[in-house]
Simulated scan of single mutants.
Amino acid sequence: MNYSIGEFSRLINISIYALRYYENENLIIPNREKNGRRCYSEKDVSWIQFIKRLKDTGMPIKEIQKYAKLRAAGDFTMNERMEMLIKHRTALEEKIAKYNEHLKKLNDKIDYYKVSIDKHLQD
Rank of each mutant, 00 (worst) to 15 (best):
K104E: 09
E94D: 13
K87I: 07
N35C: 03
K109E: 01
A18K: 12
M59Y: 04
K114G: 01
K52W: 01
Y22C: 12
Q49F: 04
S116G: 04
E42V: 05
L85F: 00
K52S: 06
K109F: 01
N31G: 07
M59N: 05
R81M: 14
N35P: 04
E80P: 03
I51H: 01
L27A: 07
A18H: 10
E80R: 05
E33M: 12
K109L: 01
L19I: 09
K119S: 15
W47Y: 10
Y21F: 14
D75F: 06
Y99N: 11
E63Q: 14
T57F: 05
S41L: 04
L106M: 14
Y67M: 05
S15N: 07
Q122Y: 10
P30W: 06
M84T: 09
N24H: 10
I16L: 02
I51V: 11
I5F: 08
R38P: 12
E7C: 08
Y21S: 09
I86Q: 11
K114L: 13
D75R: 06
R32L: 13
S15M: 07
I14F: 07
N13V: 02
N26W: 00
K62R: 08
S9C: 07
M82T: 13
G36Y: 10
L54F: 11
I14G: 01
I64G: 00
R71G: 01
Q122E: 15
D56E: 14
N31W: 00
F76H: 14
H88A: 09
V45W: 07
I16Q: 13
I5E: 04
Q65C: 10
C39R: 14
I16A: 08
S46C: 04
T90V: 15
A18F: 03
R10E: 09
N35W: 03
I28W: 03
F50V: 00
Y21H: 14
E7T: 05
Y112E: 12
R37K: 11
Q65P: 05
D44T: 02
R89D: 12
G58R: 10
Y40R: 09
N31P: 00
Y3W: 08
L85Y: 00
N2I: 01
E94I: 08
T77G: 07
Y99A: 05
K55V: 00
D75Q: 09
A72I: 02
I86F: 06
I16E: 13
I5A: 02
K62S: 15
A68F: 06
L92D: 04
K95N: 14
Q122N: 15
E94W: 04
N24C: 03
S41Y: 02
Y67A: 02
E7M: 03
S15E: 08
K105A: 12
R53C: 10
N107I: 05
Q65K: 14
A73Y: 04
I48D: 03
K66L: 08
I86N: 09
E80A: 09
K55R: 13
I16W: 02
I86P: 00
I12D: 00
R71H: 15
I28C: 06
